[in-house]
Amino acid sequence: MVPARPSLNVIDIVTSTFSVYWRGLFYFLPAILLFTVAFEAVSAEISGVIARSLTPTIWLNLALSFGEAMVNLLYGLCVQALVVLPAIHLFRDGRIGVLRSTRRLLLLLAPMVALCLIIPVVTMLGFILLFVPGVIISLMLFVAMPVLLDEQVGLRAIPRSMNLTRDYRWALLGLSILTTLIVFILAFLASFIMTPGALWLDSLEIGNPAIRGLLRVSVTAFGLAIIAPVGGISAAIAYVRLKEIKEGGASETLRKVFE
């Protein structure tokens, strides 16, 4: 008789995600805020240059829409790279280890950048092919970034992620849907901070357009920084849980979290 396959408890992962989020908030919020301000400022500048340089056409609008989707995927992966390793350390050991995480990020910068470029491209191509292949690809690569940063295997993180997620992609789809709904709720709550902040900035008489633009980007970045870590933390915890299910060796900290 074939033994029953252990389940991936989605509710426990979501609960643990917000436990880790809350305990690591002092790291996640400033790190994501600084990165988001820089990312938004560069994106706005590039968009402005494109808008001023090219004549609007249907094909240009389609290309810009595709580019915007790619940029959003890239942003999500970059944020995931920033939060995954601290989340794993906090989840396993009860502490973040900022210096250890930063050193690992710098050492793995080249494969991390490569992964951040590969995943959006293959995922978007999958979405173009009737949407469903994009969903499948995103689930297959759900834990690629945690694998890369935790196991330091370079681009072998891609087949490793495919192996870890095999037999659990329906559960990961449920996890993705649930965390997306929660993020939408958080985004709605964050809008109560962002909208008054934007209106307040509009009421100020700031003559320098660069400073005014930077302040507006900062308000938007603060709202994004509140919600952006959720996806990366949930991927990190799903990775730890999948590794435990498939390879065993759960730590005492891990067992306590899921009790």
Rank of each mutant, 00 (worst) to 15 (best):
L201H: 00
L242M: 04
K243E: 08
V217I: 13
P196H: 09
E247A: 07
P209V: 04
R216K: 14
K246V: 07
L204P: 04
I237P: 07
T195C: 04
S218T: 15
I233R: 14
A238L: 13
A210K: 08
L204S: 02
A250S: 15
A187I: 13
G223D: 02
A190F: 11
P229T: 10
A228H: 05
A250R: 14
N208C: 11
G223V: 07
Y239G: 05
V219N: 09
I237S: 08
A190D: 05
S234F: 09
A190E: 08
A198T: 06
A228Q: 09
I206D: 05
R216F: 10
A250V: 10
N208P: 02
L242W: 00
G223R: 01
P196L: 13
V219R: 11
P196R: 10
A225I: 02
V219D: 05
T220H: 13
A235T: 14
V240Y: 05
G231C: 04
G248N: 05
E252I: 11
P196F: 12
Y239W: 06
Y239S: 06
L242Q: 02
S191E: 12
A225R: 03
L242N: 02
N208K: 12
A228F: 09
A210R: 11
I233W: 01
K243Q: 07
L204M: 15
E252S: 14
G248E: 03
L214K: 10
S234T: 15
P209K: 04
I227G: 11
I245T: 03
I226P: 00
V230R: 08
E247R: 10
R241H: 13
A187N: 13
W200N: 00
A221S: 15
E252K: 14
F188W: 12
R212Q: 03
L199G: 03
S234N: 14
N208F: 10
I206L: 15
R241V: 07
I193Y: 09
R216P: 01
L201K: 00
V240M: 12
D202Q: 14
A238S: 15
S234K: 09
L242I: 02
I227Y: 08
L189E: 00
G207Y: 00
S203F: 01
R216H: 14
A250Q: 13
G232P: 05
G197D: 06
R216W: 08
F192S: 15
